[in-house]
């Protein structure tokens, strides 16, 4: 009788855990055309070493702390450790964040954590009439929104 009860518990737990872990919706990586065609970009390898930051990135020591969504928006994967953040409330802009671990993808609310980082690379991209994206100088306020705990 005890074996049957244990089996019952096991089945119940298995079914519950299957129900609780929903499959993550598929988040395809986003790539885009950057207007500035610099030779060296994050992700390239030089002499066996990976470049993590390029011209246009602001590097910030976040020391393992969280990185926050500056607006209501969407996080999409880009490359290893990199995500794009976009917001329908801020058209024509994208933020590229590299050096992010444990990032969540999909819709996020303003102030929600996007992930954690030790050394964060922030780049702001502005859509051009050609459809390409240009790296522009990030403002202090956008960096603060991303880094300051709300």
């Amino acid at each position: 009788m005890k074996r049957r009860a244990n089996l019952g518990w096991a089945i119940a737990l298995l079914l519950t855990s299957m129900g609780c872990t929903q499959a993550q919706p598929n988040h395809p990586p986003r790539t885009l055309q950057i207007e500035q065609t610099w030779q060296l970009q994050p992700g390239h390898s030089i002499a066996g070493h990976r470049i993590v930051s390029g011209l246009g990135d602001i590097s910030v020591q976040v020391k393992g702390n969280r990185v926050y969504a500056p607006f209501d928006g969407t996080v999409e994967p880009h490359a290893t450790d990199c995500v794009f953040f976009s917001s329908s409330q801020v058209p024509a802009y994208l933020i590229r964040l590299c050096g992010i671990q444990r990032s969540r993808f999909g819709d996020v609310r303003e102030g929600e954590a996007i992930g954690n980082s030790t050394l964060l690379q922030v780049a702001v991209l502005r859509r051009q009439p050609s459809g390409q994206w240009a790296l522009v100088e990030p403002s202090t306020s956008i960096l603060e929104r991303t880094l300051r705990k709300p």
Binding site: R4, A5, L7, G8, W9, I11, A12, L13, L14, L15, T16, M18, G19, C20
Partner: peptide, 12 residues
């Protein structure tokens, strides 16, 4: 055991 399976299924 049936209760447990039923309950687990509902939770699932």
């Amino acid at each position: 055991a049936t209760y447990l399976i039923a309950g687990g299924s509902m939770l699932a």
